[in-house]
Design a protein around this nucleic acid. Structure first.
Lengths: 161, 161
DNA sequence: CGCATATTGTTTCTTTGTAAAATGTTTTTA
DNA sequence: TAAAAACATTTTACAAAGAAACAATATGCG
């Protein structure tokens, strides 16, 4: 069912200009992405944002919680819940620094490190959870266009000017 | 604030391979799309799915509610609420056909037609609510790649085979 | 210093979305 | 032609997401 066609074969609904609407297409693509994610990671009880969050903590040890939330586009209230959950799972450690005791700095536990390593290939690798029909080149094109649409710059690359 | 950079200028969070993750990029792009939508249509009290739904009813008068839900990837329960809301707004008419009295067929009211016409340009046109930096060619490329990712075929175009 | 303002996260409350059961209708089949 | 199964939508109950108020800490300024 995950790969069933969007419209029934019987009588398709005419889309008209909606076929070219980025808002519509982005929503449909994300629903499809979630379906594929859950199909792949269901047994792990992994939620969509969790691996990404842990991944960023690994790459940026001691990052501040709010700063991470800005990056992942997760609102503070939700961030709070996610962090507590990951802490209870024993994958994340919260540190209140003496320098600024309002803030929370994040570190992976050993279990967190192990988790990231164990599922790196499933999340990022060629047996990626995205079972789409894009060629590797198309996938890279799509990623580049989404970054531009969202205003995300690749690491090395500064502003266009 | 809608166009503020994703990460603070101060110290960017390293993304690593997440920069190329379609799952992550699709989510960020959709959040950005919603921000832009609300910025443009706030005063209208228009919700993201409503214009699309009315648009499809205009193009497919008498379409069945469930069939429309499949197309828009909206679950039945939510579909029910959206339809009732649009009916109360006086833009949509629900018709129970004699042929199959389980189903609900949808038609626009005159007010619904007028609404679609009035905001067509804002939703689809060149003064589109998407204030992105893509060229027109890039926008079409992005739309095509999203369709392929999602398994949506453009109207004229049958299966690849 | 001492009060006003800003920062950073958390808690609470409301809204939105989903899953499961219920309702009413149609089709199948024994 | 009843009983059973399938279908299309709605209702209900629950879970996830968002907004606004709250608590704690830090900074600026008289």
């Amino acid at each position: 069912m995950a790969d069933a066609p969007i419209v029934s074969d019987a009588e398709a609904v005419a889309l008209g200009e909606l076929e070219d609407s980025l808002g519509f297409l982005l929503r449909v693509a994300q629903v499809r992405s979630f379906e594929r994610f859950y199909a792949a990671f269901d047994e792990l009880k992994l939620r969509p944002g969790e691996y990404s969050l842990l991944w960023l903590v690994k790459l940026n040890p001691g990052v501040r919680q709010g700063h991470l939330g800005d990056t992942l586009r997760v609102k503070p209230a939700q961030m709070s819940k996610m962090i507590r959950r990951l802490e209870q799972q024993g994958r994340l450690r919260r540190v209140i620094p003496d320098g600024n005791r309002r803030s929370v700095l994040l570190h992976l536990t050993d279990a967190g490190e192990a988790f990231i390593t164990a599922h790196h290939a499933a999340f990022f690798g060629h047996d990626d959870y995205h079972q789409h029909d894009l060629t590797q080149e198309e996938e890279q094109q799509l990623a580049a266009l989404l970054r531009k649409y969202s205003g995300i710059r690749k690491s090395g690359q500064g502003p266009a000017a």
